[in-house]
Design a protein around this nucleic acid. Structure first.
Lengths: 207, 207
DNA sequence: CCATGTGAAGGTATTCACAGCC
DNA sequence: GGCTGTGAATACCTTCACATGG
């Protein structure tokens, strides 16, 4: 089944596997079975094997998967094998936390520029990154930055996205709590932090 | 179809609808059609009507849905109609940003306590909330707090969750980039910010 | 006439069971 | 014996088409 489109749900799980493989590599063993990986990442072993079957034979029956080889293959599929430079728009509380967030590097993502509309912030440095005025967004194309993280207030989210699209950005992670429109060629993922929390009470027993 | 289990995917969309209804209420009109709501929130109108059909008749054929009534009903289903008090564990960069985050209130969620293991932080106030030592977690049950947000380093995430479970917490939003285990009676949602970004390059045209 | 609500159809993802291989 | 890889079976979700109601 090597020549098959990878289902979206599988793509959603690939970073989970990658994270699990990296942390389990710390333990020194070279191979891991779908069973052990299953308990480690919280996905059924059937599911894991099915997911991996979409892109080739990586496991050895009786042994398991070679951790390093599999991790590299997942990185290649997700196109994380070359470091991706990203820009952050909006250096408020959340934006500052994102600049300091250590987790992006493990996925080959690097925030190399930050923009804010507040003149009192422009020029300052946060975590080694100098804050530029939002007008500088237009220079992203020439700087070879095609990935952006939007952490601005909801009211200006759409205009920010429009500007990013105009600057040639191809992928946007949007933290503003609203839908934003973009041409089909630009992939937008919206992540509303509060919304995730809003689902919890539904699943909690009567409180 | 009034007596039917609500599918998980529908539950996942309910907060999106709720958010959309609240923002469209700002515009003054009293009713909204599945069609208009669809373009506003980015979900097909068929899907919206199907979703709403799982919990009763709220629309008026030829008119649409009463915005206020529908919003209240969604809040009731998600159990957001009474304010939920939540605790934050880990007041680092991300934790501080979450304390300052204005978005929780719209879903009836209120962070009323914060804990950290760093003695130099304990006693300080962030956004009006005094930071307590993590040992205080054990008092959550008696304070009537059953919801927790975990923003601690990965290495101590599991022990933090164990402690929260012991303190009677029933729902946990985990920002640590790893799976955490908890009894089935406790609902855990893990949100790894970097992982969302890791999916983007896959969907971006060759860069 | 316009928009909802819903069975039915269609599509997608998960689970199962086991053949094949080390 | 143990573990992978995968067709088949099942469950789930989405889309459609239209009857129903204001």
């Amino acid at each position: 089944m090597r020549y098959h489109k990878i289902p979206d749900e599988t793509v959603r799980r690939l970073p989970i596997y990658l994270r699990g493989l990296m942390f389990s590599a710390e333990k020194g063993s070279e191979h891991i079975s779908s069973q052990s990986l299953a308990t480690f990442v919280g996905v059924r072993s059937h599911q894991i094997r099915k997911d991996f079957s979409y892109f080739g034979d990586f496991g050895t029956p009786g042994v398991g998967y070679n951790i390093g080889k599999l991790a590299r293959e997942i990185q290649r599929i997700l196109r994380l094998d070359v470091v991706k430079r990203a820009a952050l728009i909006g250096v408020g509380d959340l934006g500052s936390a994102l600049l300091a967030y250590p987790g992006f590097g493990m996925y080959g993502l690097d925030i190399v520029a930050a923009f804010d509309s507040n003149p009192t912030k422009v020029g300052a440095k946060v975590n080694g990154i100098g804050i530029e005025d939002v007008s500088g967004i237009d220079s992203l194309r020439s700087r070879g930055i095609f990935l952006a993280i939007v952490a601005v207030p909801r009211q200006v989210a759409q205009e920010t996205v429009d500007r990013l699209v105009g600057a040639g950005v191809k992928g946007i992670l949007n933290f503003a709590p609203c839908r934003v429109e973009a041409p089909k060629r630009v992939k937008v993922i919206t992540l509303d932090i509060a919304m995730e929390l809003a689902r919890l009470p539904y699943y909690m027993p009567a409180s």
